[in-house]
């Protein structure tokens, strides 16, 4: 869904989200969080944001029934967004290796990652993308990702498209076959089990890993304390301190 929201579009960063009031009634009552899927336009002409969603309940059902020209109430951009790799030698921890980003999307977890892939390519950072889903027709955004980088790999749990198995298996394979002269930074979004697997692999390999989490939210602005996330430095909030967390901070 594309929204004409110039203020949000200009202020947005990859990984941030918006809170959408799906209708004006009390049913559903709360706003629904959606990550910013893409921002359209260049420079000062940036004015639209896109959200990518799956119909899972009352709120998304209502959204799916919206028509072109309808108005909706959108609050954002909210949250912290992804930290992009340091691009200059000065900023990097190890000065002798170039950064490389590996983006891993699981199912609808692709939603915030297209915008990220576009920004990384704009900054000329080498980017590899892995997309995983249960089955072929649930592989999302393949075309958009391919526009950003030629290095897109796919896996499906049932083997109907790309390699067969979980995307974590594909991740292992890619790490074996690609060069390791780079300083790797991993960006991941997807279901809980998949996140955990990817984070474990990153920890073994000592890769910096940033995970975008999905939590139930009420306010989205750090007030209700509903979207609590356990971290090594105490309880954090997915809406304000996240939704992107450095994976080494998370307690699973």
């Amino acid at each position: 869904m594309s929204l004409d929201a110039p203020y949000i579009a200009r202020a947005a960063k990859p990984g941030q989200f918006v809170q959408i009031r799906c209708n004006d009634s009390f049913e559903p009552l709360l706003r629904r969080p959606f990550s910013i899927h893409r921002v359209k336009g260049e420079g000062s002409r940036v004015k639209d944001i896109e959200i990518l969603y799956e119909v899972v309940g009352k709120g998304t059902e209502i959204l799916a029934g919206k028509k072109e020209g309808d108005f909706i109430d959108v609050l954002g951009p909210l949250g912290n967004g992804f930290i992009l790799p340091r691009t200059t030698n000065h900023e990097r921890r190890t000065t002798n290796s170039e950064p490389r980003a590996i983006i891993i999307a699981g199912g609808i977890g692709a939603a915030p990652l297209v915008y990220l892939a576009e920004e990384l390519t704009k900054k000329k950072i080498k980017t590899i993308i892995l997309i995983g889903a249960k089955t072929k027709n649930l592989i999302l955004c393949e075309k958009d990702f391919k526009k950003a980088t030629p290095e897109v790999y796919i896996s499906t749990d049932d083997g109907t498209y790309g390699s067969q198995g979980f995307v974590s298996k594909l991740f292992h394979k890619i790490l074996k076959t690609t060069e390791s002269k780079f300083e790797t930074i991993v960006y991941v979004c997807g279901p809980h089990g998949m996140l955990k697997c990817i984070v474990d692999i990153c920890q073994e390999r000592k890769f910096e890993c940033h995970a975008s989490l999905e939590e139930k939210m009420a306010c989205g602005i750090g007030v209700c304390l509903g979207c609590a996330v356990k971290t090594k430095s105490g309880i954090k909030l997915a809406c304000k301190d996240g939704p992107v967390f450095n994976a080494s901070e998370l307690i699973w």
Partner: peptide
């Protein structure tokens, strides 16, 4: 206070339930 275990909120008909636990 750390507050209660997650999940801490859910929607109800024309309302919401919360169990934040005075974090």
């Amino acid at each position: 206070r750390q507050g209660n275990p997650m999940p801490r909120i859910c929607e109800a008909s024309a309302g919401m339930l919360n169990a934040i636990g005075l974090q």
